[in-house]
Design a protein around this nucleic acid. Structure first.
Lengths: 343, 343
DNA sequence: TTGAAAGCGCTAACAG
DNA sequence: CTGTTAGCGCTTTCAA
């Protein structure tokens, strides 16, 4: 039933030559004055006839490289990561690499298991969007000398390659933007996390208010639990909107928070931007389609993905170069959601 | 710098035994009365100490199976496919398989190239969301005896395994739903395609109208070009809404069409559902968040993905079983967009 | 109980 | 110019 796979030796037999010759010809090495032109031709013809397909497994085993990279992200069904994955996939293919993607669900243990699966499959390197408490992955990869690039999130305590957004700056700009549009009491919703990128976003927001002479009240900052986001965000918003003096704008620090927040706005009949101004991180069709198009800090997904692959390629070439640390600015896309109606 | 990988022979040397023994122990075969218990213990300890990681490449080369499956979809950054990918990934991992995903961009040539890349990487089988004109993939996989399952779309002319939505029925229900809510002049927007699933969706729509005694006018059906969708859909909607007698409802046959259509509604200030009722295929957060939540035919993504993997697993076990053809019903999620306001 | 060795398909050093 | 061969890491048959 299943036709046997064609191997070099099949072709060699058919052509009446040695395996080595076939290998040379088929990997374009006959230029080096190795193989006679007529026999090279014959081999090529036979290979075509038999529809020879090289076994990359064997080749990889032989020379210790698989031309495969492992991509560990939180969840491929989240559009932010899906887009990242797409960029990484495309750019990798351009470099002759195949990508294996794994979703960690922001769970450090799952991510670690995934890493091991991919190591066993002999990936040449990793691109990783880290989750909380996954420093173990970093240290392990470092001790075994496996090349990797951290993407979108990084650990400042470790000297590694990374490609990230300038989160503090992005938040800062989001804050200033709202202030300049007349908002004064600006809330900020983030995940509860010790991750650097989360802290940076909070810091940027706080700096913006402070620099503009606004005294932010502590309870303008809401941190919600990732696992319990759908419900906690409702409480957070309730509190923001029903405080002694309600806030007049909110910055959502991720796409997921924004979507759930906006959903709840609909439920509570909170009107954007009349009742509350909005700027979000992330980017998605949702923001275009909302009745009031949502302003957001456009994270440079395409650049992030491409650069991550580039940095990894460099690292594979030059394992001992100093680490590359790339920071890319986000871009404010101002829409109506942060445009206060003239009173 | 890079620590050498630990192999069986390293452990064997360390333990002063043969490679074979180590292999037996580490693959749990010492039960078969093969290995002495104390030596087995010693081997295990050493393996742990050295942090042995089996080289799956070598194992795969040896026994001709990689425990890898290739997933070919149109575009991982489309939420429908991203969710499919997620389900396939999870279910595969549960079965001890790793997934390699490739995006074809609905391009048959790209898909064929992808297929070859994955074949060279010795995947054990494929799950494929076919694009137009990619029958070649099907015939090729059949002639080389490579197991595969078509997902979401299939070719009725070929006898293959497949797992798909009952598209005709879904469309039919969408049509009936609108009719029962008082809409009479129902337009349908689809991609221009000869693919079976597209034709089926159109057929279901037409049958619904016919069965309810509505004479559908030919220009209620709009087919737009995939590559040029963003602009063609505007024309299509213009025509639907500005005909001699404008339509009063639209069915969008995919997520992408719906998103672009709704975006244009916003631009044209067309109000849903007052000016036009809407039902869409696909599913996404967008539909929740639109000012008027969008009714849609919920495609059973989770089931589709899981079943596809199941069918492939069966096929890998039983290459000669008759083909499994699984059809799963979509489910109408009725929201306000198809709820005509009482006049 | 244990070990030696073949072989999966490929590349490359070496020999002729 | 062409062939022989070792070896990547693993499993498994066969022999001891």
């Amino acid at each position: 039933m299943k036709p046997k796979k064609i191997s070099l030796s099949d072709i060699a037999k058919e052509a009446g030559v040695s395996i080595a010759l076939v290998s040379y010809v088929l990997s374009g090495k006959e230029k080096e004055g190795r193989v006679g032109p007529e026999i090279a031709q014959r081999i090529r013809v036979i290979a075509r006839e038999l529809n020879y397909q090289p076994n990359l497994l064997a080749k990889s085993l032989r020379d210790g490289r698989t031309y495969t990279i492992g991509l560990i992200i939180a969840d491929i069904s989240n559009p932010f990561f899906a887009n990242i994955a797409r960029e990484v996939e495309d750019e990798s293919r351009r470099n002759g690499y195949t990508v294996i993607i794994g979703s960690s669900d922001e769970n450090a243990d799952k991510a670690y298991d995934l890493m091991n699966v991919l190591i066993n499959r002999q990936v040449d390197g990793f691109i990783i969007v880290s989750s909380e408490n996954s420093e173990r992955i970093v240290t392990h990869l470092q001790t075994i000398g496996m090349p990797f690039v951290l993407l979108d999130r990084h650990f400042p305590a470790f000297d590694t390659d990374f490609v990230v957004t300038n989160n503090a700056k992005a938040s800062y700009e989001a804050g200033v933007h709202l202030l300049e549009n007349g908002y004064r009491r600006i809330g900020f919703v983030a995940y509860r996390s010790v991750m650097f990128h989360v802290k940076e976003r909070i810091r940027g927001y706080q700096d913006a208010l402070r620099d503009r002479g606004i005294v932010a009240e502590a309870d303008w900052l809401k941190e919600v639990q990732f696992d319990n986001m759908a419900t906690e965000i409702r409480t957070a918003i309730d509190e923001l909107l029903s405080g002694r003096v309600p806030i007049d704008a909110i910055i959502f620090s991720t796409y997921g928070l924004a979507v759930n927040g906006l959903k709840y706005f609909n439920e509570r009949k909170v009107r954007v931007p009349d009742d509350v101004g909005v700027v979000s991180f992330g980017q998605a069709e949702v923001f275009d389609l909302y009745y009031c198009p949502i302003s957001f800090m456009r994270q440079p997904i395409d650049v992030l993905g491409k650069r991550a692959v580039e940095v990894l390629m460099e690292r594979l070439q030059q394992p001992d170069n100093p680490h590359r640390q790339v920071t890319i600015d986000a871009q404010l896309i101002a829409r109506e959601s942060s445009q206060r109606k003239p009173e």
